[in-house]
Design a protein around this nucleic acid. Sequence first.
DNA 1: AAAAGTAGGTTCCGAATAGTAACTAAAGGA
DNA 2: TCCTTTAGTTACTATTCGGAACCTACTTTT
Lengths: 118, 118
Amino acid sequence: MTGKKDATSHEHSACPMDSLLKLLMGPWTTYILWLLRSQGPQRFGELKAGMPGISSKVLTERLRMLEGANLIHRDYKPTVPPAVTYSLTPRGAELKDVLLGLNELAQRWHAEDMRMEA
Amino acid sequence: MTGKKDATSHEHSACPMDSLLKLLMGPWTTYILWLLRSQGPQRFGELKAGMPGISSKVLTERLRMLEGANLIHRDYKPTVPPAVTYSLTPRGAELKDVLLGLNELAQRWHAEDMRMEA
DNA sequence: AAAAGTAGGTTCCGAATAGTAACTAAAGGA
DNA sequence: TCCTTTAGTTACTATTCGGAACCTACTTTT
């Protein structure tokens, strides 16, 4: 994906960044990745509890999508009741710097906003 | 936002990362930030053209939201027709490393996937 | 004079999607 | 027998998104 000065820059369909941004665009996606990164492998119910407002339906769908994109791994144990644990794949784990960077910014901006208020 | 071992970790409402993830969660948000970062200040129409599939309505709404969050700046010139230019604020520009990191990952993964296919 | 063009939206409507609540399967326990 | 557990699944409602038409205020073209 080159700068706008390049006449061919409108042919973005195969642009890697375009694909990744589209992948992360869905609701709760980055949130899921952050939870798995910061809190480690988690069960379905734990993830759901960590994201107030998300429905089982959407969590399921997001997790399937991320699994399909090879960013997370789903470990299903056929117990009763079933025990399904989700974790980051090696590829998913490569998002570490990005996620930690976001966290740092979040904390810095929060601190700045607190100072502005006082 | 502490690890899951902390009993108080469920009180996330004021967690900076929670707020930032919620902010970026809306459709096309990161995409807009990426376009402004990679291609510099842009007019409404340029942004829209750079994101096939987004509606004027949603682009407007996202831009207003990002402006409200002080991540982008809106420069309105009352010409006829009007010329409105959007750019990253200093705070928005701090997302540089995160966005560049995503881009690097995107390209690396794309290259890996190409190798897997061959 | 009327029509068309420009840019950044705004409005309307149907399609798509997210959220809520109820339900399911299978085994174990009270 | 009923209840509990977990990870979903289903049905329905509410919300949101995309496409298309429209609006504003001028300027240019037909």
